[in-house]
Amino acid sequence: MPVLTIVYACLFYAAAAVLVAGFAWKVAEYWRAPAPLKIPTTPAPATPAGAAVRVAREVVLFESLFRANKWIWLFGWLFHVALALVLLRHLRYFQDPVWGVVALAQPFGIYAGFAMLAGLAGLWARRFLVERIRYISTASDHLMLALLVAIAASGLAMKYVAHTDVVAVKAFMLGLLVFDWQPLPADPVLLVHLALVALLMAVFPASKLLHAPGVFFSPTRNQADDSRERRHVAA
């Protein structure tokens, strides 16, 4: 078994463990903390079901962001939808046989790779060009964008510049899932791509990527406007 394969196998187990445990820890924190008062922001639906729909609209359409700023919405939404498609496309490395929807997503996933880069480029440009956003940007904001751009660029590079043996990569990934390690191709671009993805997984629970679970727990969005009808008592 090549050392490289062992290193990357361990890297992915560690990254996945950090991601899952950290994510679960944070979600548990949000879950356990009580919401002492009703603080939904207008326009708040009158029922819990309506509030759930509101959260779904925020997650899928970025409704509030759309009302706030069309440029941020355009780049941000483009990036996230493209990311979703790219992730869907990548599912093929983890399943055999491949789901129909994943097979269907393959050609779109390629374009999505470029769309993702375009969205990231737009968001990053704003961090330099818009004075207000330049003021609030921290080093980690830039690094997060750099990380995502590097992941997308290295991924596209494997498609268009330096092909890698995707059949072997799939065998490696499927092997990881059942603890039956298979050799990983030693292509530099692939190794960079995978290492950066592992890094992203590991920093997820300790970074602003927590906006992903956070949006579901945000009381201004997920509470119903029914404070007079139903007495709210903090759990």
Partner: peptide, 24 residues
């Protein structure tokens, strides 16, 4: 405070510095 107020905890963690609020 963060232990007894879910909103506060989420609000402190979730911000991505997108800038949507900067001119509001």
């Amino acid at each position: 405070l963060v232990a007894k107020n879910r909103g506060l905890r989420v609000f402190l963690d979730a911000c991505v510095h997108c800038g949507a609020c900067t001119d509001k």
